[in-house]
């Protein structure tokens, strides 16, 4: 975290601050203190210092106009002057920034196959965790990166169409509901943003990624494992091989731009699945889950 003054916040609103996230540069304009605080607390200083090249996304978060300035205040996200979402309650501004950035990346990154998945790496083992909401992928991903794995991405695995490598984003990890308490309990020393309640996804908070992940964000990783996690109360920790054809089908269902890439997307996904070991993973106890993941080769 680095210090911000009130003057800094207002400057962000006038000219915007430029944020480097992986290979993307985002100009953020906002006068909303909770968003500025979110950025300064959950993004490493490197993200602000090592900005180089043209801006990819111009985004702003502003309080809505009209009578909504006084009554049930709202926040509006805009991208290059376009408003892709309906306004949200004002207290959800930091979460809206992250969701808006997800939208920007997912819709403007066709040099990648964009998979709705977490991705992590350690000692040459790179795991892609595709997952539907509630599967426990973010909880597992957060636990692993708090235990020495490198965060590539919590929300979107970016597989390069040219090389098949996974490119990193190393953005804050979005945690919801019960997983907020679980991660706070197991990893109290890791910085988390404020908890925003009553969003469409329930309570939401973000975990700051480890600095090492941000420092190494430009290092791509070769995918070696595709694992479909499933958090189940009362479940034994069970890693079970799954058929590659079925894995391919499931990953395809979790892609944002599979149809945009067409047959290129299918061939890239086929090659990725072919070179990876594919598993289903049921777990309840995080300690056991971490041991299983550390044992992968």
């Amino acid at each position: 975290m680095f210090d911000l003054t009130v003057e800094d916040y207002s400057l962000w609103g006038e000219t915007g601050v430029v944020l480097q996230v992986g290979r993307y540069r985002i100009q953020v304009s906002t006068e909303i203190p909770s968003v500025s605080r979110h950025l300064s607390e959950l993004y490493a200083k490197d993200c602000f210092d090592k900005v180089d090249g043209n801006i990819d996304f111009h985004v702003s978060l502003k309080a809505s106009k009209g009578f909504r300035r006084w009554f049930r205040k709202q926040v509006v996200f805009t991208f290059d002057g376009y408003t892709p979402f309906l306004p949200l309650p004002f207290n959800q501004a930091p979460a809206l920034f992250e969701w808006g950035l997800n939208w920007c990346i997912a819709n403007h990154s066709h040099q990648y196959l964009v998979v709705h998945a977490a991705a992590i790496e350690k000692n040459g083992v790179t795991i892609i965790f595709p997952g539907t909401p509630g599967s426990g992928k973010s909880t597992l991903c957060a636990s692993l990166v708090c235990s020495g794995w490198r965060l590539l991405s919590d929300e979107m695995a970016l597989i390069s169409v040219d090389t098949g490598m996974v490119h990193a984003l190393a953005r804050p990890i979005s945690l919801k509901n019960e997983s907020i308490h679980i991660i706070k309990h197991f990893f109290p020393e890791n910085a988390m943003g404020e908890v925003v309640n009553d969003t469409a996804k329930g309570s939401v908070s973000h975990l700051r990624p480890p600095d090492e992940s941000v420092i190494n964000v430009l290092l791509p990783a070769k995918p070696t494992h595709v694992i479909f996690p499933k958090y189940m109360k009362g479940s034994e920790t069970l890693l079970k091989k799954t058929r590659k054809g079925r894995a391919l089908l499931k990953v395809a269902e979790n892609c944002f731009n599979y149809n945009v890439l067409g047959d290129k997307g299918f061939e890239l996904l086929s090659q990725t699945i072919d070179r990876c070991k594919c598993y289903e993973f049921n777990y309840e106890k995080l300690e056991e889950a971490l041991i299983v993941m550390d044992g992968l080769d």
Binding site: G245, A252, S270
Partner: peptide, 24 residues
């Protein structure tokens, strides 16, 4: 249209370039 195939033993994943759908 054109169909693309990924063979996994006795199961095959097929991608249709016309519909953009994937079938097992």
């Amino acid at each position: 249209g054109s169909l693309f195939f990924y063979i996994d033993g006795d199961e095959v994943v097929i991608y249709s370039s016309i519909t953009g759908d994937t079938h097992l």
